[in-house]
Design a protein around this nucleic acid. Structure first.
Length: 576
DNA sequence: GCCGTTTTCGGCCCGACTGTTTTCAGTCG
């Protein structure tokens, strides 16, 4: 059983317990455990199998949950989960995902009106049976119907790159507001999560607080990209953008801006830890500041807020309550990799296969971006749809690269290839031609539906080849579109370490695999990560920033990312 | 359900907004 599967069981238990109205802290314990296991840099099964180690040493895992993990790993079922599933009708969990319906109200709907599914709920609202329930009314009924429609149509998150576009447009609109003194995005967008579920904006109004904040909200409400305002109070406005994405705006006093930014950036888990630490010191942190008794002692900036607890101002990408507090305690935080640290791009395509620009144009664009080397890695022949290269065409391409390098200044084009890992195992090109390449990435495009064993064996086989430099997009996922293929990434990483190979973090906004957790795992194993754009046109090179953001979330420093080195240094790292 | 040199019991982050309430519960982030 994989970490994700164990975590999913605990999350499901948390949902079910919540519906039953159990102690909320017990519910949280299951959610924390799910998060811990999902974020683990190695397989939980490996820890369980190691007699030297104990599952209960993991954060948030005690005796009870350790036993449950053992049961799950042993292939057993959890009697507790079976009981819960028997007791809680299938379908009520879906109801709890409708905005405004939590465990209490869903339980009331279930108990009083025998509502067990989204269909039941719609019918009950339409026949006005819901409004007669205690605690419900006509407005609740309508809100539920709206929520049902919305749940059917949306629910999905948007890519960080798309969110970035929306945020930039919103900020540019808001900067025209005369009543605005300051504005900043917060939430998962600011933390750089690969997908974003809603947008959070934080503002300070100029002038008198009360009328200022009303003016700021009015200005946002007039934004053309806004579909509807769903809630509005003195300091907070909630809305939905035309595309369906939710948006929250909070207006705070200037002296609270840092505290509010810290608070609304989250993550929730990070904030819970932070407030716990504050409490230990007799302090209270809320979105208005840090308080000792009734006295505010910090709040203008985030540095100030963290400073009251002798903590560094964590980069937002690290605020997930994983290792950051531990790191801060041990000394200075790692200096995370930055876009400017990157010296080269090691996965791009050209018109030789499915790229849209010549090698020369790609090289020029890379140079403009300040890169010093660029590996052309067109597809191998198995990818026939895009006219993938056989050995002879590949050598022709490399001859062109040799000629090009003679006249290029300031950038070196590397002779590379993206060789396919074949369905039956083995690589799509022979060793003799691979041996002539500067840089070889191996990747899986076909046979993605194979079993975990098959795919993992193929990947490990590729990493055993002496000419392969790195494995590209190691999970094959397409965010919001396609699940990763079944691959034992732990086994792949162990193989990469054993054979001295690198792993790619594909910077394309749809891919971004390795994900942050996998990046952290690679780091802990000492496997160099290569951030590459996989771009098919000059503008695609701009995707590097998305990859850097993901790497930062994984805690990677310049040292952990191979292509922050010069090409000669990188070659040395490869043992060539 | 977890956790702990102030604790093995009694804590576990904190406030805004809504709707249905006559003072607050539920939900959300």
């Amino acid at each position: 059983m994989t970490n994700a599967e164990v975590a999913a069981v605990f999350d499901q238990i948390a949902d079910l317990l919540e519906f039953r109205g159990e102690n909320p802290f017990r519910v949280r314990a299951y959610r924390n455990a799910a998060r811990t296991i999902r974020d683990l840099p190695e397989a939980v099964a490996q820890i369980a199998a190691d007699p030297q180690r104990k599952l209960s040493d993991l954060e948030g895992i005690g005796k009870d949950l350790a036993e449950k993990i053992d049961t799950l790993l042993g292939g057993g079922s959890l009697p507790m989960l079976d009981d819960l599933l028997r007791e809680v009708p299938e379908g009520v969990l879906a109801i709890m995902r409708i905005p405004g319906l939590g465990p209490k109200r869903v339980a009331a709907l279930h108990k009083e009106l025998h509502i067990n599914s989204l269909e039941d709920l719609r019918a009950a609202c339409q026949s006005h049976r819901v409004r007669d329930l205690h605690g419900f009314g006509a407005k609740s009924e309508q809100a539920i119907l709206d929520g049902l429609d919305f749940a059917a149509r949306a629910e999905e998150r948007v890519l960080w790159a798309e969110a970035d576009q929306l945020v930039q447009e919103l900020l540019s609109h808001m900067r025209g507001c005369p009543a605005l003194a300051e504005i900043a995005p917060a939430g998962s967008y600011r933390r750089g999560k690969e997908t974003v579920g809603d947008l959070d904006l934080l503002a300070v109004a100029a002038g008198a607080p009360a009328c200022g904040s009303a003016a700021v909200m009015d200005y946002l409400a007039a934004y053309a990209g806004l579909a509807e305002v769903t809630a509005r109070g003195q300091t907070k406005l909630s809305a939905r953008l035309v595309g369906g994405l939710g948006l929250d705006l909070r207006v705070v006093p200037a002296e609270s801006f840092g505290a509010a930014l810290q608070y609304f950036t989250g993550s929730k888990a990070h904030n819970i830890v932070l407030r716990g630490l504050a409490k230990d010191r007799g302090l209270k942190i809320n979105e208005y500041g840090v308080f000792r008794g009734a006295t505010r002692i910090a709040g203008r900036t985030e540095e100030e807020v963290y400073g009251t607890l002798d903590l560094p101002c964590f980069p937002p990408e690290l605020r997930e309550a994983r290792r950051e507090f531990e790191w801060a305690q041990a000394g200075p935080l790692p200096r995370l990799v930055e876009l400017a640290d990157l010296c080269g791009d090691l996965h791009v395509h050209s018109t030789w296969t499915d790229g849209l620009a010549s090698i020369a144009d790609m090289a020029e664009a890379a140079k403009q971006r300040g890169l010093r080397y660029l590996a052309i890695t067109d597809h191998s022949k198995r990818v026939s749809m895009v006219n993938g290269l056989d050995a002879s065409r590949l050598r022709e391409q490399w001859a062109e690269i040799d000629r090009l390098n003679k006249r290029l200044r300031g950038i070196t084009v590397l002779k590379g290839v993206e060789v396919d890992i074949l369905e039956r195992g083995g690589l799509d090109l022979d060793d003799d031609v691979l041996a002539e390449a500067d840089w070889v990435v191996a990747s899986i495009h076909y046979g993605q539906n194979q079993s975990r064993e098959q795919i993992t064996r193929r990947a490990i086989g590729a990493l055993q080849n002496p000419h392969v430099s790195a494995m590209a997009h190691p999970t094959g996922r397409m965010l919001t579109k396609r699940k990763p293929y079944e691959i034992d990434l732990d086994a792949v990483m162990r193989a990469a370490r054993q054979h001295g190979k690198m792993l790619e973090l594909n910077a394309h906004p749809l891919r971004l695999d390795l994900d942050d957790v996998a990046c952290a795992a690679a780091k802990s194993l000492g496997i160099p990560v290569v951030i590459s754009t996989d771009s098919h046109r000059p503008e695609g090179l701009a995707a590097m920033r998305y990859g850097v953001l993901q790497a930062r979330r994984g805690g990677l420093t310049k040292h952990d990312v191979a292509n922050t080195r010069t090409w000669p240094q990188l070659k040395k790292l490869l043992g060539r």
